[in-house]
């Protein structure tokens, strides 16, 4: 029961991050079009649009990664795995989930380490904006953790399907 609640809570977090990623995409369209229009109509340009939109690209990637993984949206070469069926296939899928889980943790740690250092040493971008770098960088470890949870959920799900069905016919 509790496991189910936790599981769905993580699912909700993944969905939320995915939503934010969509909002960012819309924001990019609006801000850049605004920039172009501004240049034409008022012949002025802003300092922040290009710099901030550059940072936002990384957050589209990281915030959406979890949900996209859940839905199998990352391209993979599944021809060999598709030749299998039942338990062997599920075991392979769980193995892949496990590998992705480990990767997400490593990337999460490395990006966290980077954001932390930027925060501690007060590193900023070398432009007029002087953006504190830890702010956009922080989204990378957050996204990695969400991905890690999704990988864990998929992994447990695949394992439980193997266990529950015995032969894994459900696959």
């Amino acid at each position: 029961m509790i496991i189910k609640i936790i599981d769905s809570a993580f699912g909700k977090v993944g969905d939320l991050c995915f939503k934010i990623s969509q909002i960012i995409t819309v924001f990019l369209v609006i801000s850049i079009t605004w920039e172009v229009a501004n240049r034409f109509l008022f012949s002025s340009s802003s300092v922040w649009v290009s710099e901030v939109s550059g940072y936002l690209v990384s957050s589209i990637l990281f915030l959406a990664a979890g949900r996209v993984y859940r839905e199998g949206g990352h391209v993979s070469m599944s021809i060999f795995v598709d030749m299998l069926s039942g338990s062997p296939k599920l075991v392979f899928m769980a193995l892949v989930d496990l590998l992705v889980l480990i990767l997400a943790l490593v990337v999460g740690y490395a990006t966290y380490d980077m954001a932390l250092l930027s925060y501690q040493l007060n590193w900023q971008s070398s432009t007029t904006l002087g953006m504190p770098l830890y702010i956009p960088q922080m989204l990378m470890p957050i996204g990695s953790v969400v991905l890690a949870f999704e990988a864990l959920r998929q992994c447990l799900r695949n394992i439980s399907r193997v266990v529950n069905t015995g032969q894994g016919e459900a696959a």
Binding site: S76, S78, F80, V107
Partner: peptide, 15 residues
Amino acid sequence: ILLALGTPVAFSLAI
């Protein structure tokens, strides 16, 4: 090996 296992291309590259 990772690609053959069906690991997503992006993550295969990373690992």
